[in-house]
Amino acid sequence: MELPCGVSKSTYAQDMAVIHTRTQWGLLGILFAFLCVLPFFLNSLWLGIVIHTSIVLIAVLGLHILTGLCGQISLGQAAFLGVGAYASTLLCAKLNFPLPISIIGAAIFSGCFGIIFGLPALRVKGFYLAMSTLAAQFIIIYLFIHVRFAGGSQGLFVPIPQFLESKINLYFIIMGTAVLATAFAKNISRTKAGRIFVAIRDNDLAAEVIGIRLSYYKLLAFFICSLYAGIAGALYSLYIGHINYEHFSLMDSIWYLGMLVVGGLGSTSGAVFGVIFISLLSKGTSLLAAQMPILGPQVASTIGIIVFGLILVLFLIFEPRGLSHRWEIFKKFYRIWPFSY
């Protein structure tokens, strides 16, 4: 980690701190203040986009822990989001649980689902594991359509409490969760489990040889990833008010993975950058295409996917380490600019 000149550390705690200097504390404070006043300046369209982006951020952070840290590929994140959304809605509507409990229940339920579909990870990895999660995606969507109490292809209406009717309250709940989720994801990479995840990613056989319980930690990574997905799904159900199997398609799973890659695999800031960049880009292009009626509705509805695919391909060719790597280079450059010696 590069720090400005003159920062000295004399204790282990100082060395391990995430935030080192006063400037960084100040910037963090400004960021929080900005997030607090943001909803009062946005119209409902952009407020919706910000809320949706923060929900996606939670989902992608989960994937960051599984794929970025632990190196296990998941093509089924959207389905686990769906499990969270359906579980929270059913707990709330059918069993009359209070909302916070049903969200936590949904998260744990989704986490357990993640463990079930993570089981093949004990024997296989890489492509084979990606296949297992692809199967999870299709099987879970099938269950949404065909299990009787999940409402079939019509989906379910989500009971939304009175105080969340206002989008601004919803914004604070969701943004608060997203900030907590980011802090948790950042910190998990510094714990024992996080370091074990990285060891498994770099070489799982070597990790096993030095005494790491591979099966336990792989399943733990799946559990945490799906836990995040469950929370994101529950919040998503509150945001859209009516859930349906179409909201949790394979396409969304690929989007989440792509955001992670564009941001930079393996760093928390990468996940944040990727989500913000891709969400704004796809929304921006769709809005732009909608502004130009010559292009027709077909272009407007698919331009987001095309641009995303193109960006993904270009990033993998020209900057496989993602936006966070670019950001580090940028910071380093301006730290010594204009006196580079």
Binding site: T67, G71, I73, G126, F127, A130, M251, I254, L257, G258, V261, L265, Q298, V299, T302, I303, I305, I306, F308, G309, L310, L312, V313, L316, I317, P320
Partner: peptide, 26 residues
């Protein structure tokens, strides 16, 4: 991408599939 890890290749072909699929539907 020759020599890159398997994840990069999987994501590259996934990105290609999105790109082609979107273009065809468009």
């Amino acid at each position: 991408l020759v020599g890159q890890p398997i994840l990069a290749i999987i994501i590259m072909t996934l990105g290609l599939s999105l790109l082609i699929n979107g273009t065809v539907i468009c």
